[in-house]
Design a protein around this nucleic acid. Structure first.
Lengths: 204, 204
DNA sequence: AAAAATCTACCGTACGGTAGGTAGGCATTT
DNA sequence: AAATGCCTACCTACCGTACGGTAGATTTTT
């Protein structure tokens, strides 16, 4: 891709992230790209076009990334582990873009909105299918598959809201923690059926 | 509170929710309130002032609600259950306001931002303290308390992103599911220590 | 010399907010 | 009880600014 176009896109990502889409002016993007405002229109048809490019590209890259990470992984539990790791890692590495994807959809007009949501739904279906399959086959604890899918996906997505690249934990460390949380806690039966009940944990 | 002020606030909530804060014009709010634009300034000093009112009031009401729900509940597990229930219920009942609270903070100038974040941090500390206490006393499974707090809070907060008042599940039903997910899955030891290991669940 | 990339200069519009006025209710003064 | 002054709540009309986008000339690259 054209390098100027990339510069514009990166400036837009930073501004949309910091100030939001509607609070960002084309002149802001131009200034941060060291270019005149009118020149942006040589690369993008409109302001919305920049937003759409950011959203769609990010969602497609996320899908490709997760598919790559799932390649060759057989066991359903391991597939789920790989998917959670990949999702969380991506949301740490691409924090700004995914936050924009999460909160600036209202900047899209009907057609663009539709195609983005279709792309996102396809992505989320990867998780939902795995969870349903794992439950059906008895590898994951039974439960409301839809709600549990939402719970897992939103929890993993929200990492982008609090992750700090300069913080105590790296993206990889957080991925590890979430992999465990999701697979060995959220999805696995708490106790081997019928034994122990709640005995150990409910004293007092 | 003055009824006109409430009308303005409600119109603003709907518009900020549907179109975002920056994409909403004072004239939009005026139109939806059946009032002239200038009259809004009799009740609110500025557009930001409306946003601040919405954000701050919602966060204070959430805090009061959760404190009420925790009153008299003794056992740490039951306290956690009550807290999760309350949080999720509030996020279903007050969907629009909490979504605004989640995504429109960039509309606040420094001072307003600071006081809102202080209020929000105080609220989140209620959860964090419970989780740390539960872990220290051995009622909850050990783990990175900070990360687990974030995981739980963001997961429960995100219910507002997908909850549909006309959908299959009511706010109460979702609260029930989340209460179980958080307390008996996320926070409870998967297996009684030292026995069983992962034997039962890792066949294949 | 053609094409691509960028520029200056500008357009119409809509924004947040203000100036200043009016209508009516309700005390206080005469 | 009539007149006065003040207050709340709202209005019309407007201001300065900044927005997204365009026209068309100019420069740079191929």
């Amino acid at each position: 891709m054209n390098s100027t176009k990339e510069t514009i896109k990166k400036a837009a990502i930073n501004l949309f992230y910091k100030k939001s889409y509607f609070a960002t002016a084309m002149s802001n993007i131009a200034l941060d790209s060291s270019i005149r405002k009118a020149s942006i229109y040589h690369h993008y048809a409109s302001k919305e076009d920049i937003l759409y490019d950011i959203l769609m590209t990010t969602m497609k890259e996320l899908t490709i990334y997760i598919e790559t990470c799932l390649e060759g992984v057989e066991n359903i539990e391991n597939r789920m582990r790989a998917a959670v790791r990949a999702h969380v890692k991506f949301h740490c590495d691409r924090q700004k873009e995914v936050l924009i994807s999460d909160s600036e959809l209202r900047g899209l007009t009907a057609n663009n909105y539709k195609s983005f949501v279709a792309q996102r739904d396809a992505y989320e279906k990867i998780f939902q299918d795995m969870i349903i399959q794992g439950m059906d086959q008895g590898y994951f604890a039974a439960g409301d598959a839809k709600v549990i899918s939402y719970a897992i996906l939103t929890m993993c997505t929200a990492v982008a809201h609090w992750f700090n690249p300069k913080g105590r934990l790296s993206g990889n460390q957080i991925s590890n923690i979430y992999e465990e949380l999701v697979v060995t806690r959220l999805l696995r039966e708490s106790l081997p059926l019928h034994s122990f009940e709640n005995s150990v944990l409910e004293e007092e």
